[in-house]
Design a protein around this nucleic acid. Structure first.
Ligand SMILES: [Mn+2]
Ligand SMILES: [Mn+2]
Ligand SMILES: [Zn+2]
Ligand SMILES: [Zn+2]
Lengths: 145, 145
DNA sequence: CTTATAATTGAAAAACACTTTCAATAATAT
DNA sequence: ATATTATTGAAAGTGTTTTTCAATTATAAG
């Protein structure tokens, strides 16, 4: 059993514990998300998944993403070109690093933005509750090309 | 002449220098953007502007935003609830601080993310070219309520 | 292994947001 | 004044996401 399969089994289990059923459509959609290292649009997930499961409906992809997001298993990703992309959510507090050439997404941690946020809070009077931070660049593979 | 009117005149002048004409529709749209302290969706701009100029078309709002963005005068803003909002662009390198209650948007500067970005670049092998950073919170006014 | 229950499904239609087309109009230069 | 050309709004078109609904399927109960 690969690491991906293991994780897929975990996700399905979590869905079941929340009262959802295990279905072929969900299995396939979860596999597609877990084996892809970049954020995907619903239509992309649909096209990949339908090759494995003929008859799958795009609407089921939308519905499954909704549930996975509610459980915190996937995360919506905004990019300049598309704002409705989904990616496996990180464990803990991490931020995204996205390759503008191939789309590959990695998480990084270790940002300590607390001092900056305190300064901004003090100056502005805002009570800061959330931050969006995302890096874009060219990955090592794409630099070689 | 208020500060807003002055800025509106500047924007119109910049449009004209780029070969665009001064029209009532553009005047109104520019005024609406400049007097609002939060990011607006095209439809919101349209609804406010049409009260002042009956007959204005939504399509003109889209077209004007496109030109203003190309000139760097307005900036597209992504938020959890809406990804197609527009705001007067900042001067220089600044980031957004947005009130999750009333939507008020302010810019702040003084972030020095260079060390963090260098660390991430070294660890990941990415050549980092861009960063998105945005803070959310509750503004002083909304805290009182 | 049935059977009952309720979630899930995909097709179709609807809603939505945005873009394109086009003929009429209006701003600007001559 | 007149010619030129950008601009306009209505309408149609496009792509995306949501809703509706009857049929199907997963799961629990017997
Ligand atoms: Mn952080
Ligand atoms: Mn910065
Ligand atoms: Zn890459
Ligand atoms: Zn506020």
């Amino acid at each position: 059993m690969t690491a991906e399969n293991k994780k897929a089994a975990e996700w399905i289990k979590l869905l079941q514990n929340s009262g959802y059923r295990q279905t072929e459509a969900r299995n396939t959609i979860v596999e597609v998300i877990l084996e892809t290292n970049r954020a995907l649009e619903p239509l992309e997930i649909f096209e990949i998944a339908r090759k494995r499961q003929a008859g799958l409906g795009l609407v089921t992809v939308y519905r499954t993403l909704e549930r996975l997001e509610a459980l915190g298993l996937v995360q919506r990703v905004h990019q300049p070109g598309a704002c409705n992309m989904y990616l496996q959510a990180p464990q803990g507090h991490q931020h995204l690093l996205i390759c503008t050439s191939c789309g590959k997404a990695e998480f990084f941690n270790g940002d300590d933005l607390t001092p900056l946020m305190e300064t901004v809070a003090a100056r502005s009077g805002y009570q800061i509750t959330e931050h969006w931070f995302q890096l874009f660049g060219c990955c090592a593979d794409c630099q070689r090309k």
